[in-house]
């Protein structure tokens, strides 16, 4: 058995991410991992919901949150999920160049999201004096949203490493599962953000 799994569109299997045992393992393994991540974020959400009104006289969510910026962040991250779907579509058609292009757009959108989040946090800290140590609400807010931001950062680093590593050799059955599992992770990060948008920002507006 050769290690060279280079493919052309004719020999590309229907689901390249699951065509080998290693690929199937990665696929299931990442799904299980996301199950654990769900509990992780559920615990952070539970903590946040319990503490979201514990402002200890400091800034409250109604003073802080404006929906304009957060709406832009939401759109950017949702779009990045869509672009990663396009990338996977091109992966299945073995169009490596287009896949890389859409992945690059995904990474760019992820970085834009991150930049806006950093701006948002600095804004709260400098203009409102609202920090991690201000109140239990502050601790819970920065921890929940910060852990999500950390996941986005890790995702972008992961994506960059994959793109650079495979830039010159194209797709094969060894790296197709790696790209695919990244896209699963990225969708998950997106879903978590939808909940953050609802629970933190929308509910925060109504107080």
């Amino acid at each position: 058995m050769s290690h060279d799994h280079s493919l052309n569109p004719e020999t590309m299997p229907q689901e390249p991410e699951k065509a080998t045992l290693e690929g199937r393992n990665k696929f299931y393994g990442l799904w299980f991992f996301l199950g654990g991540e769900t509990v992780l974020f559920a615990s952070f959400f539970g903590t946040y919901i319990a503490l979201r009104n514990s402002t200890a006289g400091g800034p409250a969510s109604t003073d802080l949150f404006g929906l304009g910026l957060v709406f832009a962040m939401t759109m950017i991250l949702l779009t990045s999920s869509l672009t990663s779907v396009y990338a996977m579509y091109h992966m299945k058609n073995n169009d490596f160049k287009k896949m890389q292009l859409w992945l690059a757009i995904t990474a760019f959108l992820g970085l834009s999201f991150l930049a806006l989040e950093i701006y948002e946090f600095t804004h709260y800290i400098i203009d409102y004096g609202f920090t991690f140590r201000s109140s239990a609400f502050g601790s819970a807010f920065y921890t929940l949203v910060g852990f999500h931001g950390g996941h986005v950062t890790f995702g972008i680093a992961w994506l960059m490493a994959l793109m650079v590593r495979n830039a010159k050799r194209g797709l094969n059955l060894y790296n197709a599962p790696k790209f695919y599992t990244f896209s699963l992770y990225w969708h998950f990060i997106d879903v978590v953000w939808v909940f953050i948008f609802t629970v933190v920002y929308l509910m925060g507006r109504v107080g």
Binding site: L51, S54, A56, R133, S135, A136, T143
Partner: peptide, 9 residues
């Protein structure tokens, strides 16, 4: 942080 610090909520 103040998760378990009752003085800060």
């Amino acid at each position: 942080s103040a998760f378990f610090d009752v003085a800060l909520g």
